[in-house]
Design a protein around this nucleic acid. Sequence first.
DNA 1: TTCGATTTGTTCGTATGTATT
DNA 2: TAATACATACGAACAAATCGA
Lengths: 257, 257
Amino acid sequence: MPAHNSNTDPPAAGNLVATPLYRAVQLRITRALAAGNWKPGEAIPSEAKLAGDFKVSIGTIRRAIDELVAGRILVRQQGRGTFVAAHTEDRTLFYFFHIVGKDGSQEFPVSELLGFRKERADANDEALLGIARGSRVARVRNLLKLADRPVVLDDITVPTERFARIDEDTFRNREGTIYGLYQARYGVNVVRISERLSAAHPPAEIAAILGMHANQPALHIRRVAYTYNDSPVEYRLSWINTADHEYLSDLWKTAPR
Amino acid sequence: MPAHNSNTDPPAAGNLVATPLYRAVQLRITRALAAGNWKPGEAIPSEAKLAGDFKVSIGTIRRAIDELVAGRILVRQQGRGTFVAAHTEDRTLFYFFHIVGKDGSQEFPVSELLGFRKERADANDEALLGIARGSRVARVRNLLKLADRPVVLDDITVPTERFARIDEDTFRNREGTIYGLYQARYGVNVVRISERLSAAHPPAEIAAILGMHANQPALHIRRVAYTYNDSPVEYRLSWINTADHEYLSDLWKTAPR
DNA sequence: TTCGATTTGTTCGTATGTATT
DNA sequence: TAATACATACGAACAAATCGA
């Protein structure tokens, strides 16, 4: 068969760039994901079915899914199916959580909610989250403990528009990670984060929470989390006591698909 | 054609795990790379030629190369060929260099050699570089300036075994990056790094070099650089003045495991 | 426990498109 | 223009894992 476009588009009419068929398929899949057609943890239709639905070969479907699997948006399992990545598995936790012991140990953090309030978005929120100034946001203060000692303090901001009727109890009584909560309860699937790190002296209030002496430096992180299509959904300021822990950046091991 | 093994191996005889053919091909390619059969910047044989040499289909060759391209070990160019990734291009610089201005600007760093000496490897070198204690190592102190101001101080350790007859002039008179030097002159191709970050007060000597006040915190990074097959080749301690700059960590597609 | 249906994983082959030289 | 090399797309066959009858 020739490699022409057998879809509904006019065959190489106006489109100067001629995006490959597998990209178009990929886009349709991510759109269905973003629309919530398939939920995290659930299986998407089989490759054969998708091929039939989209009227493309199974190889093209696989090509489209390949990158989504590489980007940890989907997870394939031989004999079972292809699933929307969920934030419930321990593996996925450490993809977005980079704090490890200086001895190399990877502990599971224990979370503690320290504060919750709703406010109006300021200029910073507007710039980072792409929401209108004055719209409503929720501010969450969360502490992470490792080996029973406070290590990470997160000040989290999310727009209430995406997170309908979000409240303190929802946060406090969640099971699993925060991104797991976003995913399970609000259908917001964080698939990418961007972090900027610097060293600084934390405010006295925060140093106290982290059990740090005055004049002790901490790692400061500004994080923006994105869902499908690079749409920002959360802004987070973190302070990390690096007396006994470090931030691990592994760039990078080409993992088997 | 059936998916049998048409290579020299007995078809599913003793191998219990049955590694896919494309992995075997991938291994042969990385071995050739590590042996220096194909040099950085040069083209490797065409897919058709490799398919003929290895007696596999062109699709299997492409599959093997796919991951090496994803891992930035090889670079494909349509119509030209597939090339061994070189550290000479500006693009690749920013893959291992993560310091950006707080305003978001990405500047090209200017390097300045501050010190060079040869020593015997200590316990730390032994653990991190996998070399025998007492073997010879070179220690290099290098300063990186951004916009004419000192920002990053690197204390670099490499084993002289891999870097034959390395000396101060070689470092001082190099063109391009340090990893470019390793690659062009010693055939050592850094393909992966692992970094551990923390916040701390730098020693007075280092604070002075970075133009920092006493009691000002800095970002401290311990980096190990690896060549093919996860073999460590360089150990680096860095201090970064984050008054005007940040460490950027962008985590998304085709990520570590 | 066995068996068969389903689903993804691997390998091959072929044809054609597109960029480079 | 022609040859070369990678890119896209399709199809087929079989392997391996999973799951339920």
